[in-house]
């Protein structure tokens, strides 16, 4: 019972904390890192895989050999950082905040593909970029953390 009361109060303070400008700006910085590593990792990986060529194989050795390409290696390492950062972001923000906000990576990947790799962007794709951006802006305006029911008493 006592622990239940304590954890309830810990939960309240955490939700209160999550409204503070410091907590919010850290969440936004982490969001930026998640999006940046996603975009950079994907661009490096797709550039590298185009150099390596199509792998039509079930053998893991062929996929490991692709890692010898520096772009593939850089992309894979960056995506590893992305994975950990994404989990770190989920530790302090709602899933329904993280999913739409990190979808901005689609927009940056499309634009980077256009300017760096010379991909053609049709009017449907420009429309898609605008629509996703609207979704990102809408989600950005909601409080990043509304559910802390799963939090134990914070160890730190």
């Amino acid at each position: 019972m006592a622990t239940q009361i304590r954890s309830t109060s810990a939960r309240t303070t955490l939700l209160d904390q999550s409204r503070s400008p410091k907590f919010v700006s850290k969440t936004h910085l982490l969001t930026a890192i998640v999006v940046f590593t996603n975009v950079v990792g994907n661009i490096c990986l797709s550039h590298g895989m185009q150099q390596v060529g199509t792998i039509v194989s079930a053998s893991p050795a062929d996929y490991l050999r692709a890692l010898l390409n520096p772009w593939v290696l850089a992309g894979t390492c960056t995506l590893a950082v992305w994975m950990i950062s994404d989990l770190a972001l989920l530790s302090r923000a709602d899933l329904t905040f993280v999913l739409p906000v990190t979808a901005s990576a689609y927009v940056f990947i499309a634009i980077a593909g256009h300017f760096l790799l010379g991909d053609h962007i049709s009017w449907q794709r420009w429309l898609g970029i605008v629509v996703i951006s609207l979704g990102v802006i809408l989600a950005e305006e909601t409080p990043s953390l509304t559910s802390a029911a799963e939090y134990r008493e914070s160890p730190r």
Binding site: A103, Y106, R125, G128, I129, V131, I132, L138
Partner: peptide
Amino acid sequence: RRWAAAGLVVIGVILLRW
């Protein structure tokens, strides 16, 4: 806002990969 955000992302992703 979050429902609209999720819906817009779905529509946007579909348009982006047309």
